[in-house]
Design a protein around this nucleic acid. Sequence first.
DNA 1: GAGTAAGTTGACCCCAGGGTCAAAATGACT
DNA 2: AGTCATTTTGACCCTGGGGTCAACTTACTC
Lengths: 210, 210
Amino acid sequence: MRADAQRNAEKLRTAAAELFQERGLQVPLKEIARRAGVSHGTLYNLFGTREALIDEVVTDLAADRLDEAAEHALSLEDAWEGFAYYIETVCELQATDPALADVLSGRYPGAERLMALCDRAHDASTRIIERAQQAGALRPDFTGEDLLFVFGTNALLTRAAADAAPDAWRRGVAFVLDGLRTQAAQKPLPVGPLTPQQMYDVMGRLSGTP
Amino acid sequence: MRADAQRNAEKLRTAAAELFQERGLQVPLKEIARRAGVSHGTLYNLFGTREALIDEVVTDLAADRLDEAAEHALSLEDAWEGFAYYIETVCELQATDPALADVLSGRYPGAERLMALCDRAHDASTRIIERAQQAGALRPDFTGEDLLFVFGTNALLTRAAADAAPDAWRRGVAFVLDGLRTQAAQKPLPVGPLTPQQMYDVMGRLSGTP
DNA sequence: GAGTAAGTTGACCCCAGGGTCAAAATGACT
DNA sequence: AGTCATTTTGACCCTGGGGTCAACTTACTC
């Protein structure tokens, strides 16, 4: 790869990282090129697709944050505290970083590394959930897919409320957490959890990906 | 108004009602005209704006359903049952009718009758909430604005899941309801409720209206 | 049944986003 | 310095939404 191409790729990565974090993963590619001071043709030439760009730019940052949250959650003595910490922290990350919100509530089949990260995050969630359930604190009918739903709704709400009420999500999360404790459960849930395939479809629609 | 104009307006109302219910209030106006078998120019001529069309076509249907749900909720002996019934019923309406979902999670300042309906629905919600709180069943820190948030997120989720998992919303609602009972409340909520003005802004962003 | 106001039409404009590609520019190697 | 492969550019195309309006058509009235 020629030196100028290297430089342009770097400029594009920087611009994309900024815009993704400011406005989410659907930001127009032409705008990224504009901010990088480069023709949009160059962006297509160097990255080809939006998902490839996302994969390069977003994955590592997101991975660091999510892994750290999961690790800390599991390190807490109290299993419920760990579970609550995880949810609150991830929701807070979503509130402050639209890119991360999209990662968790979207579907980017072309972004391989990102998908791997999602799988890893899902595994970590499952561990955190199961630990809290084994400790008797978290209701046993709650699943990793349900948690994804929580993150999905939180992504939408935090984005909608980012300007007018940037902390509003904390109320919603508090209500949900209170409903997830074992002693809050009243009767069997009306329907079973989603299968991974259903989840995949739903995520696609949540983010507008067909 | 000439007879043919009457007829066309009627055809447009019918087509709009169908498409709104099938696909939500953002359906392209040109598509409504197409289904009505009429030029889109005629649509603009007869209704002017999307909101005017919405106001004529959606308001009464929505009003019937919402009023009935509220009335029945208040008629139930048990205040908590009434509250739960109201939430479940409205969420179910949203799941089966995208138009209604948009009504409750959107903002249509130009649709005067619709706005009046929203105010009425909000009042009814407040009454249902307060009754359940006075009975000691619903946590006292829950407000009508919080309920709107519940409906807003439910609207988006039901739409995303409509094909893959049309009943998924029931799980989410069950979790939330369990978190709203008085005995579920654990500690003071981290932030206060939204003001109506904040709510208005957030709703605008939820539905994509600027 | 002729005249006229009312209504309809569809071609046309705008904008924004995705995406392509021939031609121009430029880096790198000899 | 000359050559050539690589890279960049921006004009261009497409889609799909909103919206307008001059010219046409039609319903009503006398």
